[in-house]
């Protein structure tokens, strides 16, 4: 069996997990900032780090805004970086609709924090090479973004 296939499903070289607290806007962004620092330490290129950090940050803010709590896990594989975000929350009834630019159910309060333009998931799709979202209404959402390193 190969150490890792093209979609980062093998055993990672490094895996780091973080908790994300729903509703905590003051802390919203700190996990992504830590992941960014980690990727810098590893020595990835600034362009790759920026793409990964944007994916993390938009996904983190979605947990902060919509879910009760979640975990964000980053995995470094030889050929790709995998970001996994799993949350306990309301779920997304129509993922295809949620992926459309400008679609948002954000409240005025969330917009006053700078989010809710309906650009989060499209931003993740733009910056990742692969994006998968699975969601169960009433349970939660799980997101997997893959960025190729080579």
């Amino acid at each position: 069996m190969p150490a890792c296939d093209a979609e980062g499903t093998g055993k990672p070289l490094l895996r780091q997990g973080y908790a994300v607290q729903g509703g905590d806007f003051l802390a919203g962004g700190t996990v992504s900032t830590r992941i960014k620092d980690l990727l810098k330490e590893i020595g990835l290129s600034p362009a790759l780090i920026r793409r990964a950090a944007i994916c993390c940050y938009e996904a983190e803010m979605n947990v902060v805004m919509y879910a009760r709590q979640g975990t964000m896990t980053v995995e470094i594989h030889p050929r790709e970086l995998v970001i996994r975000v799993e949350d306990e929350g309301p779920g997304i009834p129509d993922v295809e609709l949620a992926m459309q630019e400008g679609y948002s159910t954000a409240t005025d309060f969330m917009r006053s924090r700078g989010f809710g333009a309906g650009m989060g998931l499209p931003n993740i799709r733009r910056n990742a090479d692969l994006l998968e979202i699975e969601s169960v209404v009433g349970r939660g959402t799980s997101l997997r973004a893959v960025i190729r390193l080579v």
Binding site: F25, L26, A27, G28, G29, T30, S32, T33, K36, P46, R50, A53, I54, C56, Y57, M61, S112, R113, G114, F115
Partner: peptide, 17 residues
């Protein structure tokens, strides 16, 4: 340049270099 003074203004600047 922003009129948004929440913690997200800083994390955005940080994340987006």
């Amino acid at each position: 340049l922003t009129g948004l003074a929440s913690a997200q203004s800083l994390s955005t600047a940080d994340i987006a270099d």
